[in-house]
């Protein structure tokens, strides 16, 4: 299972491609791809967004589903989704409104 992630060009924020080709900050809302065709579609949408100067450095990223919720597989992507582990008052983890 994969999602497509990138950084927003203007401010560098970590973003995920959501259904409908919009970009969101919360991994929970990312579009999931579980077939090569779905992955190709995400990749194409991301390429268009790079060309349109919305994002940079787009790539497919493995996730596992815990229930309905995608979670990053790697330590790096877990940190990227949350924020620095030594400063829980910073980054997305500090903005989270979900329990």
């Amino acid at each position: 299972m994969k999602v497509l992630t990138a950084n927003r060009l203007a401010d560098g924020a970590v973003v995920y491609l959501a259904v409908g080709s919009s970009w969101v900050g919360d991994l929970a809302h990312a579009a999931l791809a579980d077939t090569p065709e779905a992955e190709a579609a995400l990749t194409a949408a991301a390429a268009a967004a790079v060309k349109a100067r919305l994002v940079v450095g787009a790539y497919l990223m493995p996730v596992v589903l815990e229930g309905d919720v995608p979670r990053p597989v790697s330590v790096r992507e877990r940190i990227r989704a949350a924020g620095p582990s030594n400063r829980t008052d910073l980054g997305k983890q500090a903005e989270a409104t979900l329990p």
Binding site: N7, R76, G83
Partner: peptide, 28 residues
């Protein structure tokens, strides 16, 4: 020019690096 699309990220990257600007995990 980068935001307007007149230079690509590949062309822009060394220019921003020469002003100290990296793209890191969470942000620039």
């Amino acid at each position: 020019r980068r935001l307007q699309g007149q230079i690509t990220e590949d062309q822009f990257k060394p220019l921003r690096l020469m002003n100290g600007l990296y793209l890191q995990l969470h942000a620039y």
